[in-house]
Design a protein around this nucleic acid. Sequence first.
DNA 1: GTAACTGCAAAATATTTGCATCCTT
DNA 2: AAGGATGCAAATATTTTGCAGTTAC
Lengths: 137, 137
Amino acid sequence: MEQNLSILKKNSLSVTEGRLKILDLFLEQEDALAHADIELKTAGAFDRVTVYRTLQTFVDKGIIHQIPTIDNTVLYALCKDNCAAGHHHDEHVHFVCDGCGKTICLDDVMVPKVKLPKGFKPSESAMIVHGICNECR
Amino acid sequence: MEQNLSILKKNSLSVTEGRLKILDLFLEQEDALAHADIELKTAGAFDRVTVYRTLQTFVDKGIIHQIPTIDNTVLYALCKDNCAAGHHHDEHVHFVCDGCGKTICLDDVMVPKVKLPKGFKPSESAMIVHGICNECR
DNA sequence: GTAACTGCAAAATATTTGCATCCTT
DNA sequence: AAGGATGCAAATATTTTGCAGTTAC
């Protein structure tokens, strides 16, 4: 079974053209996507509102996660195996390349634990590293 | 000399009521502020546009820095001593409290270095920790 | 006096909601 | 057939820009 199809089934979502296509974009791409990227790559095949709703649905189901950014954009990337609905485990480092502008999930680089001041209880952490990626050197 | 005034002078910015007031908000507050917070706390004393422009000016001068967030909001906090125009050194951890919603700069907690995959050259890093802060326990 | 800052209006952009229609199961 | 997903229109929210008037130096 195709991977996009199987992801939808597994999450008991209706299989629609838009969802399959948007999932494909994430699957065939190693870096994160913004809403605008998706509109661009689907070239108006789907309504802007549908894209918003599809992304929200995927986040709710734990299929994709949002990546913290310093500007006011929202970036999304595929969750790996250990995410589930309502329970993200997005504890890998995100790398933003100042060359090509891509945001890449470094799935193998975990966010290190830090020692917090007295009284602070951590639950989840995120880390973003800026720099130059392996393709832009 | 008052602290807000001295910061403006040091950065060769004109001293205006709006800038003094907005700087005060940052100075008297340990947590980060969003544009909306500032509008709220100044209660319409200044035009919305002025707030946008003031914040942008402060970021450009290295007086405040933007904090990465997972949603599409932009948060600002005061830079400490080692920031300068066009050259932020915002390498401390930010803590977002799931209780009160505040974002707090943990100025004493540095972002740890991580080992990146071959070919990736880091420049700057940011880290966000979610959890419960010392006041919300 | 001059350059910089502000407020207002308006444009541009981004996001959300309601509802009727269509598609998936 | 029923529930869910989509498209369209419109409401709402956010951010940017131009310009004329005002203020700081």
